[in-house]
Amino acid sequence: MNSNEALLKYTLRIGDSSLILAQRLCEWTGVGPYLEEDLALTNISLDLFGRAKSLLDYVAKLEDKGRTEDDIAFLRSEREYFNALITELPNGDYAKTMIRQALVDCFDFHFYAALTKSNNETLAGIAAKSIKEITYHKRHSFSWVVRFGNGTDDSAARLQKGFDEVWPFTAELFEMNEIDELLIKQGVAVNLNDLKPLWEKEMNALLTEAHVKVPSEVYMQTGSRKGVHTEHLGHLLSEMQALPRMHPGAKW
């Protein structure tokens, strides 16, 4: 694999994670638990779509085949997406959405902070932009996890249930392959091994504060680095891609 190809695949992977989580979160539009939260999640979703747009735009430039970021976002099939599995999981109730968001926000916070130091100027620039937004996202999801955990018996039980459903998808966030190895040597990519202790420390503190129990033994899911997904991604894509597939080349 040459450097350009590795960079393309790396950018596609992080762009896809932003895109798919953005699409998931926007499912809360109009049905949030109350107006302020409806607005909060749609704002967060917009930030993620914006980040995905800038990353996929860079993929289009690296690829140089005349495709746009929209073509890449909307006209691929399931196995061609490399988003982390946790981003495609169904939203469930609000407690599940918030605990997933906290796990991902915490990962993104440390990942993009490290990416600002990349010697790839485009990625570092996008990271510098994103980190400001993620700071707000993380504060939002963390505060909800604490509230649910310390709220009623029902809210605490729902938080624990949501956590148990998404936790097996967290190890995958830190998986690395030959793409990472090549790009770390070049000072482009983030070493995810360095990130894990930071993430664990912060998550442990949050989970303790929210009285969430972490299961001692659990089978950790994997697959997205190879484009293998849960059954949920196909359904998400069919909705997301419906318009551009039915009306190819449609413009506003």
Binding site: S45, L46, L48, S54, E133
Partner: peptide, 8 residues
Amino acid sequence: TPTYSGCP
């Protein structure tokens, strides 16, 4: 430059 990445 955008204010926020996703600013519509």
